[in-house]
Design a protein around this nucleic acid. Structure first.
Lengths: 162, 162
DNA sequence: ACTGAAAATCTAACATG
DNA sequence: CATGTTAGATTTTCAGT
């Protein structure tokens, strides 16, 4: 992992569909060299995937909430996490320090769906209580913490409500 | 936005580098047709970008925290959000209902860096107090809430600590 | 909107320095 | 590790339906 790798990674975080030729031009390497480096970054687990980012409202998921999960005294964290993973509404799941065992991000279409999703969360074995924070708007999300810029065909920026 | 679009979107969420030919095979269209549809999805803002996902530890960001931001009585939310956006450590920023104005996700290398980042957060004009929840492990993150599967060259799954 | 075809470009593998 | 080459795949455009 040298400076070139970091440049390549930064570029792929901004535009995950950048071609190897593009990346090569940007960092001053041949496409072949970039191809090889990216292959290694993938196989060593530095790059874990490539994903299209979709406006949640456009796919009917306009309601977002952050939910803290308080476990019962006898709860098994791994079992609870596995159960959380079975709910499609749960997009992300973090084990955290503090009174709560997990904080999860939930995305649903309506507040009715949120109510139902919270019901399902509370019904999970090992879950004692939930604490829900409704997201009013997403100011920005998943931002590359490296300096960002435009890369040809990128479709940024992400600044949407909820 | 018909069923075909939704299929294409789901596939691109799983593998953002899927080729148009792949997608066409998967949904039963020619590569040209898929190309045209994806172009429309991008220009209408349904697809907002494509991003490589990187193991945070591999890029020296092994410490994650969720931070609630309590505003002062006179704070301007938009100004505070803009200031939060200027800190590279702040990866995501949600305006929320409740006592706190925002919840942000912060990624840094060490707990020392976390302390410094929290200092910077508190020094933002309009920020009265912060409440920090340290992430112990990321069980899963940014999961497509649509049914997922393998698509050729995808590099999943994401199951990393912190 | 989709198909099919053609030109430009890119990927992926390999031989080489 | 990087480069250059090359065959095959892919992107992109466009005429036709």
């Amino acid at each position: 992992m040298d400076a070139l790798d970091r440049q390549i990674i930064a570029a792929l975080r901004v535009n995950g569909r950048a071609t190897y030729a593009d990346l090569g031009r940007k960092v001053g390497l041949s496409a072949s060299a970039v191809h090889e480096r990216v292959g290694k970054l993938e196989s060593t687990g530095v790059i874990t995937g490539y994903h299209a980012v979709v406006d949640p409202r456009a796919v009917g998921l306009g309601v977002t909430a952050l939910v803290g999960i308080q476990p019962t005294d006898t709860a098994d964290d791994n079992e609870v996490a596995a159960s959380l993973g079975e709910l499609v509404e749960v997009e992300s799941c973090y084990a955290v320090a503090g009174e709560e065992a997990f904080v999860v991000k939930v995305r649903v279409a309506t507040v009715d769906d949120l109510e139902q999703a919270l019901g399902r969360l509370r019904r999970i074995s090992g879950v004692a209580r939930t604490r829900t924070t409704v997201v009013l708007s997403t100011r920005f999300e998943g931002r590359p913490n490296s300096p960002e810029e435009d890369l040809g065909h990128a479709v940024e920026p992400p600044t949407q409500g909820a």
